[in-house]
Design a protein around this nucleic acid. Sequence first.
DNA 1: ACCTGAACACCGTTCAAGT
DNA 2: ACCTGAACACCGTTCAAGT
Lengths: 171, 171
Amino acid sequence: MAQAHGYGGLNLRTLADLVGIKAASLYHHFPSKADLATAVARRYWEDAAAGLDAIAAKVADPAERLRKFPGTFRLALENDNRMCMCSYMTAESDDLPGIVKVEIERFNEVNIAWLAKTLVETGVPTRDARKRAHAIFAAVAGAQLMARGRGDVKVYDTLIRAYQASGLIPS
Amino acid sequence: MAQAHGYGGLNLRTLADLVGIKAASLYHHFPSKADLATAVARRYWEDAAAGLDAIAAKVADPAERLRKFPGTFRLALENDNRMCMCSYMTAESDDLPGIVKVEIERFNEVNIAWLAKTLVETGVPTRDARKRAHAIFAAVAGAQLMARGRGDVKVYDTLIRAYQASGLIPS
DNA sequence: ACCTGAACACCGTTCAAGT
DNA sequence: ACCTGAACACCGTTCAAGT
């Protein structure tokens, strides 16, 4: 729900229905919608971190690992044209409770740190790696947003290939 | 309001207050919230198109025009850390009325077409220009989103410079 | 032609009351 | 410990009634 409708569109009554209880009962498990969203967002970046670690463990070549990164953002689009929950909630910044925002920023940090570390392994100077990682991350998020708007994963693939052709993402 | 809170966060009662009438009275000017948002979105891309045309009229060098493009997306951030209304509403895709979506896509088209045309003038082959334009647009939108999340325009400037350093945007 | 109050079905949230 | 119905102030929207 958060990946398709954001924080604002996350409906407690619908959510309670899916779980088989009443909306009021949710408050026995989470003190508020903000706390529920915080738990969701925390699990979200934890899962992302685990996914990136799995790539790092399986793929020896750092350049090949970088090439695999856009695949992690592709999954959401494959799944009913959804998008990164954190990109969505970043748009919602002004209306997002502070405790949720903290977890969102953690997701960004996890991704950027992983990219920077991997870039260094491919020979990018340490002092350039972080900026470059940030740029790759922002561009990938933008590509995902565009593809969602058009409702077409192929748009995403084309954009990623254009990033590679321009030299932003090593290919 | 749309640039800060999106379509879902666009509140008719607050909006009516700002104009000095009651929410019910809005329905005398627009049949529904969807129609109001459509009018807003249309004006939004019309203004964007005019702004890009103004750059084209004033700046002779196409490479210099391309360098000026990120400035158009910087304005929203300068204005109370707001973002592109169309990026926000693209995230809201699943809950966005079709008539609004049409205007959003028009905004993307206006920007991409302008970029493609300008790229061709700098010597980029016509058949590559559109993909490249799309990539620049997506990356700039992503950078704006990141900067909004951090609430810091300097993040945007750093990202744009990273795009230029990588060769995505001509510098 | 334009505005309004009152009502509708929806939200998140609270709380007293149940098991 | 966990769940519930009923209520609260809020949404978009409708409509009969006003000028």
